[in-house]
Design a protein around this nucleic acid. Structure first.
Lengths: 200, 200
DNA sequence: CCTACCGATCGGTAGG
DNA sequence: CCTACCGATCGGTAGG
Protein backbone atom coordinates (compact mmCIF):
# COMPACT_ATOMS: atom_id res chain seq x y z
CA UNK A 1 0.00 0.00 0.00
CA UNK A 2 0.96 3.60 -0.07
CA UNK A 3 0.68 3.89 -3.82
CA UNK A 4 -2.28 6.03 -4.64
CA UNK A 5 -2.58 7.06 -1.00
CA UNK A 6 -3.19 10.59 -2.16
CA UNK A 7 -5.96 9.54 -4.47
CA UNK A 8 -4.07 9.97 -7.72
CA UNK A 9 -4.30 7.16 -10.21
CA UNK A 10 -0.91 6.78 -11.83
CA UNK A 11 0.12 3.34 -13.01
CA UNK A 12 3.08 1.75 -11.24
CA UNK A 13 6.00 3.96 -12.10
CA UNK A 14 8.70 2.83 -14.48
CA UNK A 15 12.44 2.99 -13.84
CA UNK A 16 12.61 6.25 -15.74
CA UNK A 17 9.75 7.72 -13.70
CA UNK A 18 11.47 6.73 -10.52
CA UNK A 19 14.76 8.25 -11.64
CA UNK A 20 13.01 11.48 -12.58
CA UNK A 21 11.33 11.65 -9.18
CA UNK A 22 14.68 11.19 -7.46
CA UNK A 23 16.28 13.79 -9.72
CA UNK A 24 13.46 16.22 -8.89
CA UNK A 25 13.96 15.44 -5.23
CA UNK A 26 17.65 16.38 -5.40
CA UNK A 27 17.06 19.48 -7.52
CA UNK A 28 14.40 20.64 -5.08
CA UNK A 29 16.60 20.00 -2.08
CA UNK A 30 19.55 21.89 -3.59
CA UNK A 31 17.85 24.80 -5.30
CA UNK A 32 14.43 25.19 -3.68
CA UNK A 33 11.08 25.28 -5.42
CA UNK A 34 11.30 28.87 -6.64
CA UNK A 35 14.46 28.07 -8.62
CA UNK A 36 13.38 24.65 -9.73
CA UNK A 37 13.59 24.59 -13.52
CA UNK A 38 13.20 21.77 -16.01
CA UNK A 39 16.87 22.30 -16.86
CA UNK A 40 17.94 21.73 -13.26
CA UNK A 41 15.88 18.57 -13.00
CA UNK A 42 17.29 17.40 -16.35
CA UNK A 43 20.83 18.01 -15.09
CA UNK A 44 20.18 15.81 -12.07
CA UNK A 45 18.48 13.28 -14.31
CA UNK A 46 21.54 13.24 -16.55
CA UNK A 47 19.53 13.75 -19.72
CA UNK A 48 17.94 16.58 -21.69
CA UNK A 49 14.85 18.60 -20.85
CA UNK A 50 13.23 17.02 -23.90
CA UNK A 51 13.65 13.70 -22.13
CA UNK A 52 11.58 15.04 -19.26
CA UNK A 53 8.87 16.22 -21.63
CA UNK A 54 8.86 12.75 -23.17
CA UNK A 55 7.69 11.39 -19.80
CA UNK A 56 5.66 14.38 -18.59
CA UNK A 57 3.89 16.75 -20.96
CA UNK A 58 4.26 19.79 -18.75
CA UNK A 59 6.26 20.94 -15.76
CA UNK A 60 3.06 21.14 -13.76
CA UNK A 61 2.31 17.50 -14.49
CA UNK A 62 5.79 16.45 -13.42
CA UNK A 63 5.51 18.39 -10.18
CA UNK A 64 2.11 16.93 -9.39
CA UNK A 65 3.55 13.45 -9.85
CA UNK A 66 6.47 14.40 -7.64
CA UNK A 67 4.14 15.62 -4.91
CA UNK A 68 2.36 12.25 -5.01
CA UNK A 69 5.70 10.52 -4.73
CA UNK A 70 6.80 12.63 -1.79
CA UNK A 71 3.53 12.65 0.15
CA UNK A 72 3.18 8.90 -0.28
CA UNK A 73 6.58 8.44 1.26
CA UNK A 74 5.62 10.72 4.11
CA UNK A 75 2.35 8.90 4.77
CA UNK A 76 4.22 5.63 4.71
CA UNK A 77 6.60 6.82 7.41
CA UNK A 78 3.69 7.85 9.64
CA UNK A 79 1.84 4.61 8.95
CA UNK A 80 4.90 2.77 10.23
CA UNK A 81 3.63 3.54 13.74
CA UNK A 82 1.97 0.25 14.66
CA UNK A 83 1.36 0.68 18.38
CA UNK A 84 -2.33 0.29 19.15
CA UNK A 85 -2.51 1.54 22.74
CA UNK A 86 -4.23 4.94 22.30
CA UNK A 87 -2.02 6.91 24.66
CA UNK A 88 1.25 5.49 23.32
CA UNK A 89 0.03 5.69 19.76
CA UNK A 90 -0.89 9.37 19.99
CA UNK A 91 2.53 10.19 21.45
CA UNK A 92 4.34 8.22 18.77
CA UNK A 93 2.33 9.83 15.99
CA UNK A 94 3.20 13.27 17.35
CA UNK A 95 6.85 12.22 17.53
CA UNK A 96 6.78 11.29 13.85
CA UNK A 97 5.13 14.57 12.95
CA UNK A 98 7.32 16.77 15.10
CA UNK A 99 10.74 15.31 15.63
CA UNK A 100 11.88 13.11 12.77
CA UNK A 101 11.58 15.84 10.10
CA UNK A 102 14.61 17.50 11.66
CA UNK A 103 16.91 15.46 9.45
CA UNK A 104 15.68 16.78 6.13
CA UNK A 105 15.29 20.49 6.70
CA UNK A 106 16.04 21.23 3.04
CA UNK A 107 12.91 19.35 2.10
CA UNK A 108 10.91 21.10 4.81
CA UNK A 109 11.76 24.37 3.10
CA UNK A 110 10.77 23.13 -0.34
CA UNK A 111 7.55 21.71 1.06
CA UNK A 112 6.54 25.06 2.54
CA UNK A 113 7.26 26.70 -0.80
CA UNK A 114 5.00 24.22 -2.55
CA UNK A 115 2.34 24.63 0.10
CA UNK A 116 2.33 28.36 -0.46
CA UNK A 117 1.54 27.67 -4.12
CA UNK A 118 -1.59 25.68 -3.30
CA UNK A 119 -3.90 28.66 -3.87
CA UNK A 120 -2.60 28.95 -7.44
CA UNK A 121 -2.25 25.28 -8.35
CA UNK A 122 -5.27 23.07 -7.88
CA UNK A 123 -3.15 19.96 -8.32
CA UNK A 124 -1.10 20.98 -5.31
CA UNK A 125 -4.09 22.03 -3.23
CA UNK A 126 -5.88 18.72 -3.79
CA UNK A 127 -2.85 16.70 -2.76
CA UNK A 128 -2.06 18.72 0.34
CA UNK A 129 -5.70 18.64 1.42
CA UNK A 130 -5.95 14.89 0.98
CA UNK A 131 -2.66 14.32 2.77
CA UNK A 132 -3.73 16.53 5.66
CA UNK A 133 -7.04 14.75 5.98
CA UNK A 134 -5.34 11.39 6.03
CA UNK A 135 -2.82 12.29 8.73
CA UNK A 136 -5.42 14.12 10.78
CA UNK A 137 -7.73 11.11 10.69
CA UNK A 138 -4.99 8.96 12.14
CA UNK A 139 -4.80 11.33 15.11
CA UNK A 140 -8.57 11.50 15.39
CA UNK A 141 -8.90 7.72 15.32
CA UNK A 142 -6.36 7.31 18.12
CA UNK A 143 -8.22 9.89 20.19
CA UNK A 144 -11.59 8.28 19.56
CA UNK A 145 -10.13 4.92 20.53
CA UNK A 146 -8.83 6.37 23.77
CA UNK A 147 -12.23 7.84 24.54
CA UNK A 148 -13.89 4.46 23.94
CA UNK A 149 -11.38 2.76 26.21
CA UNK A 150 -11.96 5.35 28.87
CA UNK A 151 -8.36 6.58 29.07
CA UNK A 152 -9.16 9.92 27.42
CA UNK A 153 -11.80 12.43 28.43
CA UNK A 154 -14.90 12.63 26.24
CA UNK A 155 -13.69 15.47 24.04
CA UNK A 156 -14.45 16.57 20.48
CA UNK A 157 -11.86 14.41 18.71
CA UNK A 158 -12.33 16.33 15.48
CA UNK A 159 -11.40 19.61 17.13
CA UNK A 160 -8.50 18.17 19.12
CA UNK A 161 -7.00 16.59 16.01
CA UNK A 162 -7.30 19.90 14.16
CA UNK A 163 -5.68 21.68 17.07
CA UNK A 164 -2.76 19.25 16.98
CA UNK A 165 -2.37 19.64 13.22
CA UNK A 166 -2.31 23.40 13.72
CA UNK A 167 0.57 22.99 16.15
CA UNK A 168 2.36 20.71 13.69
CA UNK A 169 1.98 23.13 10.80
CA UNK A 170 3.00 26.03 12.99
CA UNK A 171 6.17 24.20 13.95
CA UNK A 172 7.05 23.44 10.34
CA UNK A 173 6.47 27.00 9.24
CA UNK A 174 8.51 28.40 12.12
CA UNK A 175 11.33 25.92 11.57
CA UNK A 176 11.64 27.23 8.01
CA UNK A 177 10.99 30.93 8.46
CA UNK A 178 12.88 31.46 11.70
CA UNK A 179 15.49 28.79 11.01
CA UNK A 180 14.84 27.38 14.46
CA UNK A 181 15.45 23.71 14.98
CA UNK A 182 14.00 24.36 18.43
CA UNK A 183 10.66 25.25 16.87
CA UNK A 184 9.91 21.55 16.50
CA UNK A 185 10.87 20.81 20.10
CA UNK A 186 8.80 23.70 21.40
CA UNK A 187 5.85 22.44 19.40
CA UNK A 188 6.34 18.89 20.64
CA UNK A 189 6.15 20.13 24.19
CA UNK A 190 3.16 22.32 23.38
CA UNK A 191 1.36 19.36 21.85
CA UNK A 192 2.11 17.28 24.94
CA UNK A 193 0.77 20.02 27.19
CA UNK A 194 -2.35 20.39 25.07
CA UNK A 195 -2.98 16.65 25.03
CA UNK A 196 -2.48 16.46 28.77
CA UNK A 197 -4.80 19.39 29.41
CA UNK A 198 -7.65 18.30 27.15
CA UNK A 199 -7.56 14.51 27.21
CA UNK A 200 -6.97 13.73 30.90
CA UNK B 1 6.18 55.44 15.84
CA UNK B 2 5.99 52.39 13.74
CA UNK B 3 8.55 53.58 11.27
CA UNK B 4 11.69 51.56 11.61
CA UNK B 5 9.89 49.06 13.82
CA UNK B 6 11.59 46.26 11.96
CA UNK B 7 15.00 47.76 12.49
CA UNK B 8 15.55 48.98 8.97
CA UNK B 9 16.83 52.48 8.57
CA UNK B 10 15.10 53.99 5.57
CA UNK B 11 14.50 57.73 5.56
CA UNK B 12 10.87 58.86 5.63
CA UNK B 13 9.43 57.67 2.34
CA UNK B 14 8.59 60.11 -0.41
CA UNK B 15 5.31 60.24 -2.27
CA UNK B 16 6.81 58.13 -5.02
CA UNK B 17 8.03 55.56 -2.52
CA UNK B 18 4.59 55.37 -0.98
CA UNK B 19 2.95 54.98 -4.36
CA UNK B 20 5.36 52.21 -5.29
CA UNK B 21 4.64 50.39 -2.03
CA UNK B 22 0.92 50.59 -2.69
CA UNK B 23 1.42 49.41 -6.28
CA UNK B 24 3.48 46.50 -5.02
CA UNK B 25 0.75 45.73 -2.51
CA UNK B 26 -1.87 45.52 -5.25
CA UNK B 27 0.33 43.53 -7.61
CA UNK B 28 1.11 41.08 -4.83
CA UNK B 29 -2.52 40.74 -3.88
CA UNK B 30 -3.63 40.11 -7.44
CA UNK B 31 -0.82 37.94 -8.78
CA UNK B 32 0.93 36.41 -5.78
CA UNK B 33 4.61 36.57 -4.99
CA UNK B 34 5.72 33.87 -7.42
CA UNK B 35 4.31 35.88 -10.34
CA UNK B 36 5.32 39.26 -9.03
CA UNK B 37 7.43 40.92 -11.70
CA UNK B 38 8.81 44.41 -11.98
CA UNK B 39 6.55 44.85 -15.00
CA UNK B 40 3.44 44.00 -12.96
CA UNK B 41 4.44 46.44 -10.24
CA UNK B 42 5.17 49.08 -12.88
CA UNK B 43 1.75 48.53 -14.43
CA UNK B 44 0.09 49.17 -11.06
CA UNK B 45 2.39 52.12 -10.51
CA UNK B 46 1.35 53.53 -13.86
CA UNK B 47 4.91 54.09 -15.02
CA UNK B 48 7.78 52.13 -16.57
CA UNK B 49 9.99 49.51 -14.96
CA UNK B 50 12.87 51.95 -15.40
CA UNK B 51 10.97 54.27 -13.08
CA UNK B 52 11.03 51.57 -10.43
CA UNK B 53 14.76 51.11 -10.89
CA UNK B 54 15.19 54.82 -10.48
CA UNK B 55 13.87 54.49 -6.93
CA UNK B 56 15.18 51.01 -6.10
CA UNK B 57 18.34 49.60 -7.63
CA UNK B 58 17.18 46.00 -7.63
CA UNK B 59 13.98 44.02 -7.30
CA UNK B 60 15.29 42.55 -4.06
CA UNK B 61 15.77 46.01 -2.60
CA UNK B 62 12.26 47.02 -3.55
CA UNK B 63 10.81 43.89 -1.99
CA UNK B 64 12.78 44.35 1.23
CA UNK B 65 11.40 47.88 1.48
CA UNK B 66 7.92 46.56 0.83
CA UNK B 67 8.27 43.98 3.58
CA UNK B 68 9.23 46.76 5.97
CA UNK B 69 6.19 48.71 4.88
CA UNK B 70 3.86 45.75 5.34
CA UNK B 71 5.26 44.45 8.62
CA UNK B 72 5.24 47.94 10.10
CA UNK B 73 1.57 48.22 9.27
CA UNK B 74 0.95 44.85 10.86
CA UNK B 75 2.84 45.74 14.03
CA UNK B 76 0.93 48.97 14.21
CA UNK B 77 -2.39 47.13 14.14
CA UNK B 78 -1.30 44.87 16.99
CA UNK B 79 0.09 47.76 18.97
CA UNK B 80 -3.36 49.36 18.77
CA UNK B 81 -4.37 47.03 21.61
CA UNK B 82 -4.10 49.35 24.60
CA UNK B 83 -5.81 47.36 27.33
CA UNK B 84 -3.45 46.83 30.24
CA UNK B 85 -5.28 44.19 32.29
CA UNK B 86 -3.16 41.06 31.61
CA UNK B 87 -6.04 38.64 31.06
CA UNK B 88 -7.98 40.96 28.77
CA UNK B 89 -4.84 42.08 26.99
CA UNK B 90 -3.73 38.54 26.16
CA UNK B 91 -7.16 37.70 24.77
CA UNK B 92 -7.26 40.86 22.67
CA UNK B 93 -3.77 40.25 21.30
CA UNK B 94 -4.75 36.73 20.28
CA UNK B 95 -7.86 38.15 18.65
CA UNK B 96 -5.74 40.49 16.56
CA UNK B 97 -3.42 37.68 15.58
CA UNK B 98 -6.09 35.14 14.81
CA UNK B 99 -9.30 36.75 13.71
CA UNK B 100 -8.82 40.07 11.98
CA UNK B 101 -6.54 38.67 9.22
CA UNK B 102 -9.61 37.00 7.74
CA UNK B 103 -10.39 40.09 5.71
CA UNK B 104 -7.22 40.09 3.62
CA UNK B 105 -6.72 36.44 2.70
CA UNK B 106 -4.98 37.43 -0.54
CA UNK B 107 -2.26 39.04 1.50
CA UNK B 108 -2.07 36.04 3.82
CA UNK B 109 -1.21 33.94 0.79
CA UNK B 110 1.45 36.32 -0.44
CA UNK B 111 2.91 36.54 3.05
CA UNK B 112 3.30 32.77 3.28
CA UNK B 113 5.01 32.79 -0.11
CA UNK B 114 7.45 35.40 1.09
CA UNK B 115 7.99 33.55 4.34
CA UNK B 116 8.92 30.42 2.43
CA UNK B 117 11.64 32.44 0.70
CA UNK B 118 13.29 33.42 3.98
CA UNK B 119 15.90 30.63 3.75
CA UNK B 120 17.07 32.05 0.42
CA UNK B 121 16.80 35.76 1.11
CA UNK B 122 18.55 37.10 4.17
CA UNK B 123 16.72 40.40 3.88
CA UNK B 124 13.42 38.54 4.25
CA UNK B 125 14.68 36.29 7.05
CA UNK B 126 15.92 39.23 9.11
CA UNK B 127 12.64 41.08 8.81
CA UNK B 128 10.43 38.10 9.61
CA UNK B 129 12.61 37.19 12.58
CA UNK B 130 12.52 40.68 13.98
CA UNK B 131 8.79 40.96 13.46
CA UNK B 132 8.21 37.62 15.15
CA UNK B 133 10.35 38.58 18.11
CA UNK B 134 8.48 41.85 18.50
CA UNK B 135 5.01 40.29 18.45
CA UNK B 136 6.08 37.41 20.67
CA UNK B 137 7.51 39.80 23.24
CA UNK B 138 4.15 41.54 23.47
CA UNK B 139 2.57 38.22 24.40
CA UNK B 140 5.38 37.37 26.78
CA UNK B 141 5.13 40.75 28.51
CA UNK B 142 1.38 40.34 29.05
CA UNK B 143 1.96 36.88 30.51
CA UNK B 144 4.75 38.10 32.79
CA UNK B 145 2.54 40.93 33.94
CA UNK B 146 -0.24 38.47 34.77
CA UNK B 147 2.17 36.33 36.75
CA UNK B 148 3.33 39.36 38.73
CA UNK B 149 -0.24 40.33 39.47
CA UNK B 150 -1.02 36.80 40.58
CA UNK B 151 -3.78 36.17 38.03
CA UNK B 152 -1.66 33.73 36.00
CA UNK B 153 0.18 30.67 37.25
CA UNK B 154 3.95 30.93 37.54
CA UNK B 155 4.76 29.48 34.12
CA UNK B 156 7.67 29.84 31.70
CA UNK B 157 6.39 32.90 29.84
CA UNK B 158 8.99 32.44 27.12
CA UNK B 159 7.74 28.96 26.33
CA UNK B 160 4.06 29.87 26.51
CA UNK B 161 4.55 32.80 24.15
CA UNK B 162 6.38 30.55 21.69
CA UNK B 163 3.60 27.99 21.97
CA UNK B 164 1.01 30.64 21.15
CA UNK B 165 3.05 31.91 18.18
CA UNK B 166 3.24 28.33 16.93
CA UNK B 167 -0.54 28.12 17.02
CA UNK B 168 -0.79 31.46 15.22
CA UNK B 169 1.61 30.42 12.47
CA UNK B 170 -0.09 27.05 12.13
CA UNK B 171 -3.42 28.77 11.64
CA UNK B 172 -2.05 31.08 8.96
CA UNK B 173 -0.41 28.25 7.08
CA UNK B 174 -3.53 26.10 7.23
CA UNK B 175 -5.75 28.98 6.18
CA UNK B 176 -3.67 29.32 3.01
CA UNK B 177 -2.87 25.71 2.19
CA UNK B 178 -6.24 24.19 3.03
CA UNK B 179 -8.26 27.25 2.08
CA UNK B 180 -10.04 26.99 5.41
CA UNK B 181 -11.37 30.17 6.94
CA UNK B 182 -12.24 27.93 9.89
CA UNK B 183 -8.54 27.28 10.48
CA UNK B 184 -8.27 30.65 12.22
CA UNK B 185 -11.32 29.96 14.40
CA UNK B 186 -10.03 26.52 15.32
CA UNK B 187 -6.71 28.04 16.28
CA UNK B 188 -8.38 30.81 18.30
CA UNK B 189 -10.20 28.17 20.33
CA UNK B 190 -7.02 26.10 20.67
CA UNK B 191 -5.13 29.13 21.93
CA UNK B 192 -7.90 29.84 24.45
CA UNK B 193 -7.81 26.23 25.66
CA UNK B 194 -4.03 26.33 25.94
CA UNK B 195 -4.05 29.61 27.84
CA UNK B 196 -6.73 28.30 30.17
CA UNK B 197 -4.85 25.05 30.80
CA UNK B 198 -1.42 26.54 31.40
CA UNK B 199 -2.09 29.92 32.97
CA UNK B 200 -4.87 29.14 35.47
C1' DC C 1 15.17 9.95 -26.22
C1' DC C 2 18.74 14.08 -28.65
C1' DT C 3 19.83 18.43 -31.14
C1' DA C 4 18.43 22.51 -32.20
C1' DC C 5 15.42 25.78 -31.86
C1' DC C 6 10.99 28.67 -30.83
C1' DG C 7 8.56 32.86 -28.77
C1' DA C 8 7.95 34.93 -24.44
C1' DT C 9 9.49 37.05 -20.58
C1' DC C 10 12.67 38.14 -17.12
C1' DG C 11 15.62 41.96 -14.37
C1' DG C 12 18.32 45.50 -15.48
C1' DT C 13 20.68 49.43 -18.15
C1' DA C 14 22.29 53.13 -21.64
C1' DG C 15 21.35 57.46 -23.19
C1' DG C 16 18.78 61.05 -23.09
C1' DC D 1 11.65 59.57 -15.22
C1' DC D 2 10.97 57.39 -20.73
C1' DT D 3 12.25 54.70 -24.90
C1' DA D 4 14.61 51.27 -26.47
C1' DC D 5 17.23 47.72 -25.78
C1' DC D 6 20.51 44.08 -23.58
C1' DG D 7 21.81 39.08 -22.48
C1' DA D 8 19.97 35.33 -20.00
C1' DT D 9 16.75 32.08 -19.20
C1' DC D 10 12.33 30.11 -19.20
C1' DG D 11 8.96 25.96 -20.71
C1' DG D 12 8.01 23.65 -24.58
C1' DT D 13 8.37 21.61 -29.46
C1' DA D 14 9.77 20.01 -34.33
C1' DG D 15 12.09 16.63 -36.63
C1' DG D 16 14.61 12.98 -36.51
Amino acid sequence: MGRGMTGASEPPVSDADREIMEATHRALRDHGYADLTMQRIADEYGKSTAALHYHYDTKEELLAAFLDYLLDRFVESVRAVETTDPEDRLELLLDRLLVSPKSNSDLLIAMLEMRSQAPYKDAFADRFQQNDEYIRHMLEAAIDRGIEEGVFADVDADHVSRALMTIVDGARTRAVVLDEAVALETARQTAAEYVDATLR
